[in-house]
Every structure is written in C-alpha cells, then in structure tokens.
C-alpha cells in the first residue's frame, strides 16, 4: 500500500511536469506537430534586412503564417524568402509581399496585401510583387543628400 502511494505520487508529479513542459513547448514556444496545416510560398526581395526566420506573416494585421527560411540566390543576389501560410487562406496571384517594421524599433514582419485576380497561388508558387525592407538610414541619407 505504501509502495503504491509512492508510485501514485510520482505518477502525478511526472504528469504535472510533462504537462507544464508541453504547455511551454507547444502553446508558448510554438513548436507545432509538423507543417501539415500550412503551405509554402516563395518571394524574392532586393533586401530582407532585419527579417528573421520565424517572423510573422500578416494580412490586414492578422497573423497568417511565418517565415520558414531566408536564403541568398547566388545568381541574382536576391533574398529568397520561403513563407508558410496557414492552410485555408487562398491568396490571389497578384498579391504583394512587403517587409515592414512593427513600430520604429520593433520586429520585422512580412505584410501580404491580397490582389484582385481570380487565380490563387498554390503551394510553392512565387509571389512576384514584392517590396523590400525600408531602411531608416537610407531614408535619412536620401533626405539629407537630396536637399
């Protein structure tokens, strides 16, 4: 009976601990069980400066996915960004992806502005219209030297 008690308590402890760990990993840490519930899209930017893997994709301010990878196309020297968009969100072919900043010093994210075309993008299609990261330094220097 005493032994049984110990095992029971250990069982409870392990369950609580595992539940806490699972909550941290899955709910807060965003570790998903796979990528089944999303599909990839590709976009090319002249500059993806400041964008990180895992950054948000937003449409009208609502989060609809995240950046999976950012690699350099060594032929065109463009940044190739692969995005994971939640399943069920169909984007028109002429949608535009632009890199934006949350506030002045906040994280970079990709804002997708849906177009009006009938055709929708399928998995692994490319968003052709893109707008690169706006660099505050560039804006400032442009302003100063054009005066």
């Amino acid at each position: 009976m005493k032994k049984y008690g110990v095992e029971f308590i250990v069982g409870i402890f392990v369950l609580i601990g595992t539940a806490a760990l699972a909550y941290l990993a899955i709910d807060i840490g965003g570790l998903s069980g796979g990528e089944d519930d999303s599909y990839p899209l590709v976009a090319r930017f002249d500059s993806s400066s400041g964008l990180k893997e895992g950054a948000h994709i937003e449409i009208a301010g609502v989060r609809v996915g995240q950046v999976r990878s950012i690699v350099l196309d060594s032929d065109s020297f463009e940044s190739v960004v692969t995005m994971l968009i939640d399943e069920g969100i169909a984007l028109p072919e002429d949608s535009m992806a632009s890199i934006r900043t949350a506030g002045i010093i906040g994280d970079r994210f990709i804002k997708v502005s849906p177009g009006g075309a009938e055709e929708v993008l399928a998995a692994n299609d490319e968003i052709l219209e893109t707008e690169s990261a706006i660099s505050i330094e560039e804006l400032v220097s442009k302003y100063i030297f054009e005066e």
Binding site: V14, I16, G17, T18, A20, L21, Y23, L24
Partner: peptide, 13 residues
C-alpha cells in the same frame, strides 16, 4: 536528470 527538467517546467509555468 528526469526530475529537474520537469520541476523547471513547473517553475516556468
């Protein structure tokens, strides 16, 4: 090695 990570997760939550 089993118990410490579980306790840590409890502290976090």
């Amino acid at each position: 090695i089993i118990a410490v990570p579980l306790l840590t997760a409890v502290v976090d939550v």
